[in-house]
Simulated assay, not measured.
Amino acid sequence: MRVKTRLKFVFICIVVIVLVLLSLSKILFPFARENNEIRFQLLPFYPIYSCIKFYKSMNKKDMPFTIIADDAVHKSTKKQLVVFVVGETQRSANYSLNRYTKNETNFYTKEQNVISFSEFYSCGTATAVSLPCMFSDLKRGDFDIAKANSRQNLVDVISSVGIDTFWLGNNSGGCKAVCDRLIKENVKEYKAINFDEVIFKDAIDMIEKATNTTFIVLHVQGSHGPIYFKEYPDEFRRFTPTCDTAELNKCSIEEIQNTYDNTILYQDLLQSELIKALKKRENEFETAMFFISDHGESLGENGVYLHGLPYAIAPKYQKHVPFIFYSNNDAVNKRLLALKDAQFSHDYIFSSVLGYLGIKTAVYEKEFDIFSKY
């Protein structure tokens, strides 16, 4: 058999395998996600994978930690109270603020004078990449996890200038090293043992007691699948019928989407309550809330479910994410409205937050500051 014929045969086999896997994704992907330990039983693939991983770890060279903003200073003349909510697995396509019409998923925040950016895109399609990337000064095109973990991130820089900085996490995957350098007293991880309201209540308590400029990160469990039905209390089963099982193959697309929409509605209420708490302090602080999801989700479009596909081939649903912004600064809000349909991405977070807080440093890039574009 000639080389070209063999290559053609191999290519056809790969295409067939991919198509078969995609056709079974409604069964296989949720099963693998909920039964993570099954990978240990894959012989001989897992032992080979483990050996390669062990070899790489033995030959891995520690990278020296880099201080990227030793010149950072906080120049704001007013006290600020800023909450940054990291959404989990929420996609822009199901946001009624972004022209989604099937269900009113933003019933609560629509009354809170928020700005929703309709064309915002993630750095990755899974939390392990997107979370460290969104807080890094590195851009998606040159992002590397090892490099990011060996240099200051946005949280580090904000803390370094004397701003009271906190991380409240209710995500089962933890903070992916983003919060590792904060003082222990300022980090609280629940690991998804409760609904997300637990960290919102903690944040609201901090808002009520704040006396200095404060930056609070909330990392939620959000809309993580395939157990969407477990991500909200029973009273938020508003859009029905729902898919009340992790076995998505037993549910219709409508049931899956309704259940997913219920998770967004629940998060929307939590954000609204947070904004109300910020409004109570607006006479003393300039207040703001950023809500940006780490990545999106596929809900059965073209037979694809969940998330985590390679960025180059992942559908838009896994990369197109919501960004909601609230501020009591009416001048800022009015100007940002002109940009709400412009295209931005996680690449803009680092400099935009620094710019909003008034932190001056050489690593700040004006061209990546959304607030500098009006």
Rank of each mutant, 00 (worst) to 15 (best):
I17V: 15
E235L: 09
N106D: 05
T101D: 08
A32R: 11
D268V: 00
L339A: 04
S159P: 06
T101W: 04
R181H: 14
K280D: 10
C175G: 13
L274H: 01
A338H: 13
S327K: 06
F195C: 04
V321Y: 00
A146K: 14
V3A: 11
L138Y: 08
Y348N: 11
N98I: 04
V16I: 15
D347W: 03
F29H: 13
F45M: 12
C243D: 07
G296C: 08
K139T: 13
P132T: 02
L22P: 01
N94R: 12
V3T: 13
N283R: 12
E273W: 01
E189M: 14
Y374T: 09
S23W: 11
Q343W: 07
F120D: 01
G296T: 03
Y55T: 15
L22N: 15
F323C: 06
R39K: 15
K139P: 05
M63L: 15
E284R: 07
Y260N: 04
Y95M: 14
I193Y: 05
F371Y: 09
K201T: 10
N113V: 01
A203M: 06
E255A: 10
D294E: 06
R33N: 08
M134V: 00
F229K: 03
A277R: 01
P64V: 09
L131T: 07
G222L: 00
N249E: 13
L306Q: 10
T89A: 15
A338C: 10
K250F: 08
P241N: 03
K201Q: 13
F344R: 05
H219V: 06
E208C: 05
